[in-house]
Design a protein around this nucleic acid. Structure first.
Lengths: 319, 319
DNA sequence: TTGTAAGCGTTATCAG
DNA sequence: CTGATAACGCTTACAA
């Protein structure tokens, strides 16, 4: 494997000069430049990037922490991040955590060890204290509604979005409203639960814990939701479903079970995915790719910022 | 940022000794070990991994090239790869190519520059010649039906799988069979087209180019397929759909359009995704995660191997 | 415009 | 068991 020193010898110049043409610095005479270029061709030379990293203390590698890539929510986020990464010449190192804290710690460790320059955590499992402990090794950005001094965030205000959606359903005549989330212990779900309870108080409705359905992630979970509802003495007349995939599963399954939508059951999905359009599902459009882009930009930016992303209700046929 | 030299000074030993305790070598006296360990605690020391990489010439980083992560096929592959990566202490660098050759070249470049030890290409856009040019920089493994001397592969025999599926439909009485693929120019699709044509010849049926529908990737493409079929004078009575998502879209859409399944139209999906089970779609089970695992193992293995993965027809209600 | 030489932080070799 | 010292391959003052 030929290196910069060999090149120098071959071209009859110093390593510095070689480095200069490699990095397109000015102040290299045309003659020498050509000589070096020829040596490069002749030897099929290419840099050892690890040496560059060591020397510069930077890697142009960004870590991305997410529980799984298969879920459309994270896939969209990732798409936005990847787009900006490409533009800015960064590569992405993926950490699929399955919500295991240990995997998140792996990522934090790589930040420590300087193998990645910065870290985007799309969904956090570890404590904020742990995050803060690692902050001085490099920028960490989060995708949640938080406004700490030292951490940039991009987020949707799940509280107000949820509250408004609930009021929308209330105005449409619903008083028994349930909802499905992916992971009730997550920070977004906490905000949603808060909104839900405040909504109930405001309209003097009472809380039924069975109306909150947890662990809904994929289309097939729609079946589970319908089953749960059939077991209820007084099932909800409307459902907020935090992802269109599950909303689609519910709609399909309801159909098989002879439940009419929206008459027997109204549905509002989230994300405005293509499937929602196809199945004419009322949904809340959330620009995930744009969020991903913003996360990336924050991760390479100097200042700490907090960006709230706006959402948009798309009225279709399920309410 | 404290380094190994500082530690040595602090603990009153040589850098070599520090390195030894860091890497858990034997032959270090308990006294010195403890001294070093204490120095590590005291300084909150952590290795600079880039120096390790440079020194060792290895990174424990594996590149993964795929067009997009949102698609369930690639997501499953990635899941399998990630699982094994975790086990073997590798991290993954993601290259989302959108089938752009230039992005694939980025990955190849990183292999050259030793930033990644090896490369898994889940779906190839560049030529085999390009691949072969990079082979001596590190192992490259492919996910396609190919048996070259120097490249390991894990694959499904799309020719025979398709052929058998076609014969299955034929036995069920279908003579007008169409099919949908994601990317007709891909190597798997080429095999499928071959099988399709051979099937037609064998049973003396004639070829209709409109029966091959390209660019079907997501659920929503089901709508497109139904539209296309409605424009045909003589639409197919059965469809092979290379992904369950699209099959699901077709089933849903057909329903809306008053097309009865399987009477008016029979459907076989591919992949055996949960949605297929939920919607009772006959499908061909392909163990993608297992493929991903195998790809990873090949990428870190010494020898070149070629592994064909078996598939399994799941008979349900759409044929 | 060019080159020398000192880092960057480890690991590996080899002699003791 | 221990420690000098030479790699690893590149960047970057600094001097010329």
């Amino acid at each position: 494997m030929t290196n910069i020193k060999d090149l120098a010898k071959l071209a009859g110049v110093s390593v510095t000069t070689v480095s200069r043409v490699l990095n397109e610095h000015p102040y290299v005479s045309e003659t020498k430049r050509v000589a070096v270029l020829e040596a490069i061709k002749a030897t099929n030379y290419h840099k050892n990037i690890n040496a560059v990293h060591l020397s510069k203390g930077k890697t142009l590698l960004m870590g991305v922490v997410l529980p799984f890539t298969g879920h459309p929510y994270f896939a969209s986020l990732l798409k936005g991040i990847a787009r900006k990464a490409l533009e800015h010449n960064y590569k992405l190192v993926l950490f699929q955590t399955d919500y295991l804290e240990s995997r998140e710690l792996d990522a934090l460790q790589m930040l420590k060890e300087k193998q990645i320059d910065s870290l985007i955590i799309c969904s956090r499992a570890c404590s904020m204290a742990t995050i803060e402990d690692h902050l001085h090794f490099g920028p960490i950005v989060l995708c949640e509604n938080l406004k700490r001094e030292q951490v940039s965030t991009t987020f949707v205000n799940h509280y107000s979005v949820f509250f408004e959606a609930l009021e929308y359903l209330y105005r449409k005549g619903h008083q028994q409203i349930g909802y499905c989330v992916g992971r009730r212990s997550g920070s977004s779900s906490a905000k949603r639960e808060e909104a839900y309870k405040d909504f109930l108080v405001k309209y003097d409705l009472h809380f039924k814990s069975e109306y909150i359905m947890d662990n809904c992630l994929y289309v097939e979970d729609g079946e589970k939701v319908i089953k749960l509802m059939k077991q209820m003495a007084e099932p909800p007349t409307a459902l907020l479903v935090t992802n269109d995939q599950i909303a689609a599963g519910i709609v399909t399954c309801a159909h098989n079970e002879g439940i009419t939508i929206p008459d027997d059951l109204a549905i509002i999905g989230f994300d405005n995915q293509p499937i929602a359009k196809m199945m004419n599902i009322t949904t809340i459009d959330i620009p995930h790719e744009q969020m991903g882009e913003n996360l990336f930009l924050q991760a390479i930016g100097e200042e700490i910022t907090h960006k709230e992303i706006g959402v948009n209700l798309i009225e279709r046929g399920t309410v």
